[in-house]
């Protein structure tokens, strides 16, 4: 194509209406305008992507690169390929941490979401002091995790804890909560639930308020009981919200860290036999207690994959809620 119209840039800029349509590779003068049109949107949204690249993508890639090495903190690094991953597959301590993490997650999340749903349903009714109760369930969320964990750890203390004292009134011997899997899991799950149940309840409540009233009215006229209305209207309509809370809880549950660490006086071993060591704690133990950076990076990548798998499983489970009809 040799068609080349040499129009003055200034003329063009002043009279954009006469601009030829096929001006794609046109004169330099149109460049700012084109630049403005094509690039500005990207520029405007770029801060997020730049930050994501620096603080999200780069660490992810760098962690992967580290996971391929035998890399000792404050020491030497040596490329070893997939050795770390092979070792991890047969590492009993890692799988113990996975079992603990999933166990605590199930123990914490299932009652938490059910309770949140019931709470939200109750708060959605016409009750006295509704605002007070609605604000009230959110209060645990504004306390810091550390404060929650420290207070609960004292409540669960072996010698001077309040829970053992209360149990003692019923003739139960002092329980060393940290020493067994079941007892430590329960203790940690209560910390998580105390803090997050209200948060989920408020989200469910917001979801419930978007459900059109006339559905319930119609159902009432048809003679559906409140219980039936809950199962047949509220739950199916809440499905997207439930999927969201399940996602968030899964990510939070599988990266559980602060509560079990503080429950253990800030140590990463999760009890003397790792009764409640979570995967996140195992990463820190490997990287910053045994100084095996490369191996810690490997565990971190496995945790990432685990979360993906967990979210997918939960997605399919949650999609079936109330979806039978």
């Amino acid at each position: 194509m040799s068609l080349h119209v040499e129009t003055g840039p200034r003329a063009d800029a002043r009279a954009p209406g006469r601009r030829p349509r096929q001006g794609g590779r046109g004169p330099r003068g149109r460049l700012p305008a084109m630049f403005d049109l094509r690039v500005t949107p990207y520029l405007l949204i770029s801060p997020y992507f730049l930050l994501f690249a620096v603080f999200g993508l780069f660490p992810l890639a760098f962690t992967f690169w580290t996971s391929l090495q035998k890399y000792e903190l404050a020491g030497d690094a040596e490329f070893t390929g997939l050795d770390n991953y092979v070792k991890l597959m047969s590492d009993g301590d890692f799988w113990n941490a996975v079992v603990n993490t999933v166990g605590i997650f199930v123990l914490a999340t299932v009652p938490q979401l059910v309770l949140a749903l019931l709470l939200a349903n109750a708060l959605n009714k016409r009750i006295r002091g509704r605002l007070f109760f609605r604000m009230g369930v959110l209060i645990p969320l504004v306390t810091s995790i550390v404060a929650v964990a420290v207070v609960f750890t004292q409540l669960y203390g072996r010698d001077y804890g309040m829970i053992n004292w209360i149990l003692g009134l019923f003739g139960v011997d002092n329980i060393a909560w940290q020493n067994e899997k079941w007892s430590s899991w329960i203790a940690i799950a209560t910390m998580v639930d105390w803090r997050w149940t209200g948060y989920n309840a408020i989200i469910y409540l917001a979801g419930m308020q978007t459900i059109p009233r006339d559905l319930y009215e119609a159902a009432s006229i048809d003679g559906a009981s409140p219980r039936r209305q809950f199962w047949q209207i509220t739950l199916p309509m809440l499905r997207p919200i439930i999927v969201f809370t399940v996602f968030v809880s899964t990510i939070g549950g599988l990266t559980l860290f602060a509560e079990p660490v503080l429950f253990n006086n800030g140590r990463m071993d999760g009890g003397s036999t790792g009764q409640f060591q979570t995967v996140a704690m195992y990463i820190v133990e490997q990287g910053f207690r045994r100084f095996e950076y490369g191996y810690a990076a490997t565990v971190a990548w496995m945790l990432f994959l685990l979360i993906l798998v967990g979210v997918l499983i939960n997605y399919f489970l949650a999609r079936r809620i109330g979806g039978a009809k």
């Binding site: 060393a176 940290q178 020493n179 067994e180 071993d269 009890g271 003397s272 036999t273 207690r289």
Partner: peptide, 16 residues
Amino acid sequence: KAEVENVILGMDEGSI
């Protein structure tokens, strides 16, 4: 030291 003392303590508290 940190790891082996864990075993000693685990024995002490009865989990090992």
